[in-house]
Nucleic acid binder design. Structure first.
Length: 456
RNA sequence: CGGGGCGUAGCGCAGCCUGGUAGCGCAUCUGGUUUGGGACCAGAGGGUCGCAAGUUCGAAUCUUGCCGCCCCGACCA
């Protein structure tokens, strides 16, 4: 690589140069805490009902979430690509969904008066791609995904990005020879999702789900339990505490036991709820709560391959429609869900894996020679250590800096001011617990660099 | 789409009922005093009161229409 000096400053940021329009007051439009905090922390700006600009802080978190989703998809064997947001109506006429999808689909006419649409999902397009290139059982299996903006013209957008009209979604599509093979792809995604949500500090419970307008006969929703969840859910309490399988699973092997372990216990959304079955759960393990749907996986067989003629030739020389599944993660919704799960009355408390910056450096007296020097030194060292620090070098008063740091929720705050420096002390504050440590500047930087503090 | 509510400065709001030169707090800018958990004093800038039509000598205020946004319900990553 040459010219990489142009990116040398990539992992460091001074607040004076950043764009962080924080709000002291809560905008009256926002009803739920994640929406309120996203507005107050300067993460998003509403441009229209259910349509948001992602300001630098929000965009950074969104990218961290995307990165985790991407890593776990790749680990599970999915291959990334990118399809366009604007699609031709013709594909949707082939599948029959152009008429079925209804007003939720944003329809557009181009200058030649051709019917186009802003994609709410991509089954048709991926099926078209598959049938163009894949004809043989030897081409299978295929597991493809992209992370892309979707648009669904919701009747009532609400709760900020939780139910926006435009939203970022990861959608994966599987192509297999038959149902048994398709179930293996389904199980891979099932396990990948457990790991994905776990890495973000979320406890997501898979629940049997209705297949909705996409159709099919095997489907699970992944639900994060939260008071502000939109739907009521019922499950065995053990499922909530069940840890994720972790990265070291045998992705080529049989994943069914892992899936069975998490589907054996009762768990269902409102529309799938079976009160009698739920009553079988021991009373002290019965959990009814509200939940946020952050992922949804489907096996739908030949629902699209049949009408769209995505056939493959089998070893017996007969052509049969390919078996498909689709697997969605609401990436932008996840950001809101993480805030719902991790906040206090002062602001966000990011899990380190998705924190927009690894640490904040608060210069309590910008302009003071000793404070400036200590901060610059810490800034360089923490950057070098890969912590991606945000250095608050502004002239704002200490109180405002503390409030902003708490609001945007960086896991650690390194607090440096003239008073402490006189005794060779700085303070490290752990955002989640609120605990503080008085240390020498050198020790504080060294211990932060070696990740010695617990954000648990 | 049904029901309800709201549009007044970047944000939070008052004024509207009972028409008469548009206000408050925060934020912003200037000067000063301050500076370890959202400082204080003095001053300044910023609004065709969502848009349009109507009533009136006169409309933020009354009437009608439109637009936008929020909430509750039925639907969805």
């Amino acid at each position: 690589m040459e010219n990489d000096h142009s990116n040398a400053d990539h992992s460091r940021m001074r607040l004076s140069r950043f764009f962080l329009p924080v709000l002291k007051e809560t905008p009256s439009d926002a009803q739920i805490v994640s929406h309120q905090l996203m507005l107050r922390a300067g993460m998003v700006r509403q441009q229209s009902a259910g349509i948001y600009s992602w300001l630098p802080l929000g965009w950074k978190v969104l990218q961290k979430i995307s990165d985790i989703v991407r890593e776990e998809q790749n680990r599970a064997g999915a291959v990334e690509m990118l399809m366009p947001t604007i699609q031709s109506a013709d594909l949707w006429r082939e599948s029959g969904r152009y008429d079925d999808y209804g007003q939720e689909m944003l329809r557009i006419t181009d200058r030649h008066e051709r019917d186009m649409l802003f994609g709410p999902t991509n089954e048709e397009m991926i099926t078209d791609l598959f049938r163009t290139y894949c004809r043989s059982y030897k081409d299978l299996p295929k597991l493809l995904y992209h992370i892309q903006w979707k648009f669904r013209d919701e009747i009532r957008p609400r709760f900020g990005v939780m139910r926006g009209r435009e939203f970022l979604m990861k959608d994966t599509y599987s192509f297999d020879l038959d149902e048994a093979a398709a179930r293996h792809a389904y199980n891979r995604m099932f396990v990948a999702y457990l790991n994905t949500f776990s890495r973000m500090g979320l406890k997501a419970v898979p629940m049997r789900a209705d297949t909705g307008p996409i159709g099919g006969d095997l489907s699970h929703e992944f639900i994060v339990l939260a008071e502000t969840g939109e739907s009521e859910v019922f499950c065995h309490a053990d499922l909530v505490e069940m840890g994720a399988p972790g990265p070291d699973v045998d992705w080529e092997g049989d994943l069914q036991p892992l899936v069975d372990q998490r589907t054996a216990l009762y768990a269902a959304t409102e529309e799938m709820h079976d009160a009698d079955a739920f009553a079988q759960v021991p009373e002290d393990r019965r959990l009814s709560a509200r939940g946020i749907e952050v992922g949804h996986i489907f096996y739908f067989g030949t629902k699209y391959s049949e009408p769209m003629k995505a056939y493959v030739t089998h070893p017996d020389q007969k052509d049969r429609p390919v078996h498909m599944g689709s697997y969605g993660v609401g990436v932008s919704r996840l950001l809101a869900a993480i805030i719902e799960a991790h906040h206090d009355d002062k602001g966000c408390i990011w899990p380190e894996s998705v924190a927009p910056f690894g640490a904040g450096i608060l210069n309590l007296r910008a302009g003071d020679e000793a404070a400036d020097a200590a901060c610059e030194s810490a800034y360089a060292a923490l950057s070098e250590a890969g912590l991606d620090p945000l250095y608050d070098d502004t002239k704002e008063r200490p109180g405002g800096k503390f409030a902003t740091a708490d609001l945007i929720g960086l896991p650690y705050q390194l607090v440096i001011g003239p008073r402490g420096l006189k005794e060779n002390k700085v303070e490290v504050k752990v955002r989640r617990s609120g605990e503080t440590h008085e240390l020498s500047p050198e020790d504080a930087v060294a211990r932060l660099a070696e990740r010695a503090f617990s954000n648990g």
